[in-house]
Write a protein that binds this DNA or RNA. Structure first.
Lengths: 135, 135
DNA sequence: CAGCATCCGGAACGATACTG
DNA sequence: CAGTATCGTTCCGGATGCTG
């Protein structure tokens, strides 16, 4: 079971027993997923893809997100260079969030995933129904 | 992840009017992420993409995963029709896991995400270092 | 408007022990 | 080999209240 390569020589090796930490030497997939694989990051990225947005606009768009989680998610994305944060010192303050170039590049595969999701959710539903019926 | 599922595991639907949604108003992205966005699902899918695998082979490949989580993750993927489970009643028993066609189709965008991860983790690291240095 | 601080309930997850 | 069962902990994430 060692077919652990793909076309780009992407190392599919998972060499981190210290799963909880992202200290050096861990699986890149795992690393990125730990950062971006949470509930809200992908939705934020997708919503920022067409245009930059301010905090509350974002909050209104992503229904179900709490203020706290939006803040936390945006900080995390900003920290990783995926989102930029621009403050205009007006009163009241205006804070604009936008995807960086890195964020835009990530939005491409994310959007592909989104397209799959939109196109296959019926399949997921019926598969689940069948499985639950069998069980 | 974790997200508002009732006891039947049916995800409550959120609408994200910000980007492409269908008539139903539910967010397909959110739905798929709730199923596949957990820590291990994507790694399992990626590892099953080149070839089917048996339980312990999978466990050895995905370092850091506990037996429990591998079981739970595989059940979840099987339930959603992404992974098939084949038991050969030998002694000791052999259980082979493989991606279904649906799983293979999902593996495509997932692999794209993985490629991005592998190609950009240095960017993430340096961005994070810069952010932390500034803070 | 755009946050941050605090509390805290529950889900997620790891460790361990046991089974067919 | 391929699980199941149980326990204990961690920590995600919502709710609430306060700031500039």
């Amino acid at each position: 079971m060692n077919a652990r390569t793909n076309e780009e020589g992407v190392p599919l090796l998972y060499t981190t027993p210290g799963f909880a930490t992202d200290a050096g030497g861990s699986c890149p997939i795992r690393e990125v997923l730990d950062r971006v694989g949470d509930t809200w990051s992908i939705l934020v990225i997708l919503n920022l893809q067409p245009a930059s947005m301010r905090f509350n606009a974002l909050k209104r768009t992503i229904e179900g997100i709490s203020q706290r989680m939006l803040t936390v998610t945006l900080r995390s994305l900003e920290r990783d260079g995926l989102v930029s944060r621009t403050v205009r010192p007006t009163t009241p303050p205006e804070v604009e969030y936008a995807l960086t170039e890195l964020g835009q590049s990530l939005a491409v595969p994310i959007a592909a995933l989104g397209a799959w999701a939109a196109g296959n959710r019926d399949n997921l539903h019926s598969a689940r129904a069948a499985f639950d019926a069998a069980a």
